[in-house]
Design a protein around this nucleic acid. Structure first.
Length: 339
DNA sequence: CGGTTTTGACCCGCGC
DNA sequence: GCGCGGGTCAAAACCG
């Protein structure tokens, strides 16, 4: 995929003095300056020191959350681009015929990407459309084209939501025999005008992978789908840069937040940040936060960094969990020190 | 209040 | 013909 080559992702979070902690976020910091103050300074100095440190940590915390927001935006932008790219490919190449392989089972997929078009694997379209379907009633199945999209999420995330820029209405859920995970059935919200349906189910082999099977083609654009309805978070995100805060979950946070324990802190703060950033330049140009005069203030570096991180997000779920844990850890730390 | 989600019931095709 | 299983319906619950 081209998008992958666009942003190479060797993630380097060490651009700032305080690293994003993988394991010992809070206690290490605490003990560091507690010990420092106890040995060398009187109590007042220690308190001042703590305050200073607290301010620093708060500023970093704020910046981290801003970065996270920007990251989410970039992530979703990339994903939307990818989705559009895939749908273009499907409509151009996947319609006529593809390979003639056929099987219904979910193919094994050891994908590292977050979304994977399975143009080559797909096969489902051919099974129902062309090869072997004298048995199937032909009314719809001959016309409809099917395609599959694989999306990596956290295994703990049970939402079965595949954000593809369209609005979907869930009309059923079923536990199928060959897969313990429930399969969700969605219709396009524009139905009956738009006949598209999709099925979403976790992969049997890798619970962190959602398999979305699309049937039919949208007769409207994604942008048509932007609206007050709730099932299309990614489109909402795109609109968000101009609208400001939405009261639902930030799109990529469905993965991020659901995947980690301390969800509330992160989520509410994202809302805060969003409301802040709504006044600034949208889509990846975040404003400077006060007191940060490191190299990351250079826009090109920021851009590069953001792209790196966004791409990293798309590839490494554990990174998402680690980042969310780090940020929420900071929040907890702040709360703890405030009291 | 309107739209969405949930979920049990129902329908229907397929294999035996 | 019967049972199974996937897909859909529809009423109730939920939500903003």
């Amino acid at each position: 995929m081209e998008f992958k080559s666009l942003v190479d992702t060797s993630l380097d979070l060490n651009f700032r003095p305080l690293r994003v902690p993988d394991e010992v976020p809070k206690q290490e910091v605490e003990s560091n300056f507690i010990g420092l103050g106890r040995d060398l300074m009187p109590i007042k100095d220690e308190a001042g020191d703590l305050l200073e440190e607290l301010n620093r940590v708060s500023a970093e915390n704020k910046k981290l959350t801003e970065m996270l927001t920007v990251m989410c935006q970039n992530y979703n932008t990339l994903r939307n681009q990818l989705t559009e790219y895939m749908s273009k490919q499907n409509s151009s190449g996947g319609e006529d015929h593809s390979t003639g392989s056929k099987k219904r089972k979910v193919e094994s997929n050891n994908n590292n990407e977050i979304v994977k078009s399975v143009q080559g694997l797909h096969s489902e379209s051919s099974s129902s459309d062309e090869d072997t379907s004298p048995k199937k009633p032909r009314e719809e199945h001959i016309k409809t084209k099917t395609s599959r999209v694989y999306m990596r999420t956290e295994a703990s995330d049970t939402s079965l939501i595949v954000k593809d820029g369209y609005q979907w209405r869930k009309y059923g859920q079923k536990v199928t025999r060959d897969n313990p995970s429930p399969r969700a059935y969605f219709k396009c919200s524009f139905a009956p005008t738009c006949p598209v349906k999709k099925k979403v189910q976790r992969s049997v082999e890798d619970q962190s992978i959602l398999v979305a099977t699309y049937e039919g083609e949208h007769n409207h654009s994604k942008t048509d789908a932007t609206g007050p309805v709730t099932t299309s978070p990614s489109s909402r995100l795109n609109a968000k840069s101009s609208h400001g805060v939405t009261h639902s979950i930030v799109p990529c946070s469905t993965t991020l937040i659901n995947s980690t324990g301390p969800t509330l802190t992160l989520q509410t703060d994202q809302k805060k940040v969003n409301s802040n950033t709504s006044t600034s330049t949208p889509s990846g140009h975040k404003r400077k936060s006060p007191g940060s005069d490191h190299q990351q203030n250079r826009p090109e570096f920021q851009q590069f960094l953001i792209e790196q991180m966004a791409s990293s997000l798309t590839k490494d779920p554990s990174f998402q969990a680690a980042l969310a844990a780090a940020i929420s850890g900071k929040f907890l730390q702040n709360n703890h020190t405030d009291k």
